[in-house]
């Protein structure tokens, strides 16, 4: 019975994961990915990791909402209800993906992992809490510092205020002599898509 539920959830996770790259709309893609995460979270709940499973669900709901906002910011087809294809090196990618799956699946089928299940009645949430915030707190501290550095880095990277003025005006350094051309190396050409607004 549990096997059936888990198999169904895994299939759903894989199917929605596949849909991510098969739907036309960016919004559909990001929420398809969210469904894939929700299915994995549900597997976690079934496999006696309720906190991890539910945390996956709520974290991914937030993350995919942010993802959808960014999609809308950057895509030429924001509402995304019209068909479009944006892929490159399709064959290489498909072969690489297929090989990765085949290799990992072969490893899974060939391996003989131990079979120690979680003992029934274990309070896994409390165990996680003690492990996370116990005497050493190593993971918690490491994750905390990493996330702090990420926040600082992300804010600096995405800030409009560049070193030499607004980033979207090129943030050019001043010339070496008054009124001269900007100092430093000049980037050649723009990026490409100037006209999707």
């Amino acid at each position: 019975m549990t096997d059936l539920v888990i198999a169904a959830l895994c299939l759903f996770a894989v199917w929605t994961g596949w849909r991510v790259f098969r739907v036309d709309s960016m919004v559909r893609a990001s929420f398809s990915l969210m469904l894939s995460f929700v299915a994995v979270g549900a597997v976690g709940v079934v496999l006696s990791a309720p906190y991890i499973g539910i945390a996956t669900i709520f974290m991914m709901a937030v993350e995919m909402m942010v993802m959808a906002i960014f999609m809308v910011m950057f895509m030429m087809n924001p509402a995304g209800l019209n068909p479009m294809v944006m892929v490159h090196q399709h064959r290489v990618a498909a072969v690489a993906g297929g090989l990765a799956f085949a290799g990992l699946a072969a490893a899974v089928l060939a391996a003989d992992p131990p079979a120690a299940r979680v003992a029934t009645g274990t309070d896994t949430v409390a165990a996680l809490g003690h492990e996370l915030l116990g005497p050493s707190m190593l993971i918690f501290e490491t994750a905390g510092v990493t996330l702090l550095a990420t926040m600082v880095g992300a804010v600096i990277l995405s800030s409009r205020r560049g070193r030499f003025g607004p980033a979207d005006d090129g943030s050019r350094p001043p010339g070496l002599e008054p009124g001269g051309p900007p100092a430093g190396r000049q980037p050649e050409g723009g990026g490409g898509h100037h006209h999707h607004h």
Binding site: V20, F21, V40, V87, Q89, G97, G98, F101
Partner: peptide, 15 residues
């Protein structure tokens, strides 16, 4: 394994 394979395909193929 399937999720990782699909993810790799996506990461390599999307523009």
């Amino acid at each position: 394994a399937a999720l990782i394979g699909i993810g790799l395909y996506g990461a390599l193929s999307q523009q």
